[in-house]
Computed example of a mutant assay.
Amino acid sequence: MATLTQTGPTPGTPAVTTGPKPILGDVRDAGRQSLIYLFLLVPMAALAAAVPFAWNTGLLSWTDIGLAVGFYLLTLHGVTVGFHRLFTHGSFNPNRPVKIALAILGSMAVQGPLITWVADHRRHHAFSDKEGDPHSPWLFGTSALALTRGFWHAHMGWMFQPRNTSNEERFAPDLRRDRDLVMVDRLFWVWTVATFFLPAVLGGLIAGSWTGAATAFFWASLVRVSALHHATWSTNSICHMIGERPFKSRDKAANFWPLALLSGGESWHNSHHADPTCARHGVKRGQIDTSARIIWFMERAGWVSDVKWPRPERFAKLVAD
């Protein structure tokens, strides 16, 4: 089968290396593929069991809720502000502590190592909703059956494919040259252990019991990780299928307001694909974008600079006909 190639950098993403290097990576080894199943399916099983578990046992405390919400917000914005707007699109320049903190918090979302995540997402923008896009819902056609298959593929099915879709050398050479980010990437297993066991330790200490540790592990570790997985995956699936498209983009990305709060503003997806490097995705009045608000706060604190805020004249030219 012929390998896919790209002839140049994608607008809105940091430059990638030139030349006919293949996009598709090697076949994943059995151990890595098994870990993907483990860290996706076990939290998902907990999420599916969450309501009957709480109903039948009553084992859900305010400590569990507080830890789940707190870790959700920290890791959510590690992905949205860090992995996505900073490391993928270069929407702002951080100081070193902020850069490292965002890389660690994003890793604690358990969506894959930093450099792999960024390479996959840059590839998505390079081939958005075309052949070569790792998670477009439109790759199989437009019939009801094809879109059902496409939704599953875009939402999570693409991660179970045995072939690695990222090509870090091609799509993330800048991150591979950053010693701090390479170290965070290599220590992904540490951040994975931390994200599952820190809530349990805190829950046990606050409740003063092993039961408190166990319920915190269930709610603030397993259920929280899976809930964030699905919020992120919905941007790949739902936000490329339904919603409003007020701006011109070269794909089917759409704004889907019901997901705005859960996704930290990522569901203003048409706006993002119209201007990928923009630090604010909810560019219109009233569009909730907590990730942009965090970037705004860090800019005011002097922790980040060169923020690429929306330019009204640019978006005026992008208004869809």
Rank of each mutant, 00 (worst) to 15 (best):
F53E: 05
F315C: 09
A320Q: 15
R186A: 09
A214L: 11
L261W: 11
H84I: 09
F297Q: 12
K252I: 12
G212F: 06
M44H: 12
A109G: 04
P199L: 01
A207D: 11
L47M: 04
R149K: 12
A48E: 05
L205R: 09
T63P: 14
I115H: 00
H281Q: 14
G286W: 11
S107E: 07
H121V: 10
G90I: 01
L73G: 07
L73K: 02
R96W: 08
G106D: 06
L76N: 06
W296G: 06
A220I: 12
W158H: 02
P52A: 11
L205H: 04
F83S: 07
I100Q: 03
V223E: 00
N270P: 08
G12F: 07
F217R: 00
C278K: 03
A207E: 07
N56S: 10
P113M: 01
N255G: 10
R224C: 00
S263A: 12
R163Q: 10
W191K: 00
T18L: 12
I100W: 08
T195I: 11
R179Y: 15
V118E: 00
R149E: 08
G78L: 03
L67Q: 05
I288C: 05
D120G: 03
R123S: 09
W55R: 06
V16R: 02
V283G: 00
R311D: 15
T7C: 13
P11V: 13
V110I: 15
W303K: 02
G212S: 05
R280C: 14
T88Q: 05
G264V: 09
L73S: 04
S34D: 06
N167C: 10
V81A: 06
A279C: 13
D251C: 06
W296L: 11
L198I: 15
L67Y: 03
T17S: 12
A214E: 00
T116Y: 06
L105C: 07
V16P: 08
T142G: 10
D180R: 12
L261G: 06
G150S: 08
R314W: 11
Q287E: 15
V304T: 09
I36D: 01
M1G: 14
A231L: 05
R28D: 10
T3M: 14
A172F: 02
I115C: 02
D321Y: 10
K252C: 07
G78A: 04
W233F: 11
R300T: 14
P276V: 13
A316W: 13
A254N: 03
T18R: 07
P246W: 02
F218G: 02
W219D: 03
I206M: 04
A46Q: 01
L105F: 12
Q287T: 14
A68V: 06
A200G: 06
S234T: 06
C278M: 14
P312W: 11
P276M: 05
G31A: 12
G8A: 11
Q33I: 08
R300A: 08
T277A: 14
G132C: 07
G58E: 09
R285H: 13
R176V: 15
D133Q: 04
